[in-house]
């Protein structure tokens, strides 16, 4: 009887989300990459060091072979993992903060503030971002990773801001918000204590998308050779692989892993997001069951 009871009551929530295979898989993937980003570079050795011959295929010593200058692909991949994730998370945080400011303030105050902010986000949404980034990145030239994160976040706030705004608009008219307003609570207190807690799923989802977007955008820029010229990201590796004739020499071990890592991390993050979406939209959950 006791056995049945313990079986019937598993932990059905992870991080406050309904436990599901998707969520667990997503967390495992993202956790794996986080670990790589932290510990990888320490274990991997110097990515610039010449440790092997030119374009050697994977072997027992060099698990992922070597580049055209004889550097270790594995070591580079470790450093690139750290670089890409750093830029992704930084840009994600910056973009989310931006979207939160624009979305909450616009949605809460309404009126012309909202009109102006909405117009701003909608304009930002229709202007093509990658060409704009190419333009900006070229003028900025060799900024550090933080500069790139900042630039990328400049274009990633608009979508989430729109979602947050509509959520705030619907929250604004709830009874408990009215009650707080009538009882004379100041606007910022209502925003922080009444509205913000209810936005957590939307913000979390926006944040995860922003990281995916930032990593993809950064890899796109770097792969085009606009990432500042260092091999500090997956996209940068792709750029050097393409220019180092990895393709014509058939050195798949050089250009396959970075892209695979991007796609795998993106998949992990999306899986986490599905769980958040299902929390917000129970109809999807029922469908999955």
């Amino acid at each position: 009887m006791t056995a049945v009871v313990t079986l019937a009551a598993p932990r059905d929530r992870v991080l406050g989300l309904p436990r599901s295979g998707k969520l667990v898989a997503g967390l495992v993937i993202v956790g794996f990459f986080a670990l790589l980003a932290i510990a990888g570079p320490i274990l991997a050795g110097d990515p610039e060091a010449l440790v092997a011959g030119r374009l050697e295929p994977p072997s027992a010593e060099q698990w992922l072979g070597s580049t055209d200058t004889g550097q270790s692909v594995l070591a580079q991949l470790m450093y690139a993992t750290r670089g890409s994730m750093l830029i992704g998370v930084t840009a994600g945080v910056l973009g989310t903060v931006g979207s939160l400011l624009i979305g909450v303030v616009g949605g809460y105050f309404g009126g012309w503030v909202d009109e102006a902010f909405s117009l701003l986000s909608n304009v930002a949404l229709v202007i093509p971002t990658l060409p704009l980034l190419i333009l900006v990145a070229d003028y900025v030239e060799d900024g550090g990773p933080f500069t790139y994160a900042l630039i990328i976040s400049l274009i990633s706030w608009a979508g989430p801001a729109r979602v947050i705004r509509s959520q705030v608009m619907s929250l604004r008219n709830r009874d408990y918000v009215d009650a707080a307003r009538v009882s004379g609570e100041p606007g910022w207190r209502i925003m922080v204590f009444q509205i913000l807690p209810n936005l957590v799923p939307v913000i979390a989802s926006g944040f995860v998308w922003a990281i995916i977007g930032a990593i993809l955008t950064e890899s796109g820029l770097s792969a085009l050779g606009l990432g500042g010229g260092a091999v500090t990201s997956w996209g940068g590796m792709l750029y050097y692989a393409q220019n180092g004739s990895a393709l014509s020499m058939g050195s798949w071990w050089w250009f396959v892993p970075p892209g695979l890592f991007i796609a795998a991390l993106g998949t992990g993050l999306s899986l986490i997001n599905f769980s958040i979406d299902e929390l917000m939209n129970p109809r999807l959950r029922k469908a999955a069951a």
Partner: peptide, 25 residues
């Protein structure tokens, strides 16, 4: 449908390289 998650996360640049490498070259 879940596999589309992976497709969506593939960077264009890399996919182009792969197609070029395998189907082209």
């Amino acid at each position: 449908i879940p596999t589309t998650t992976f497709l969506a996360a593939i960077p264009y640049f890399w996919l182009a390289l792969l197609l070029l490498f395998f189907l082209g070259a």
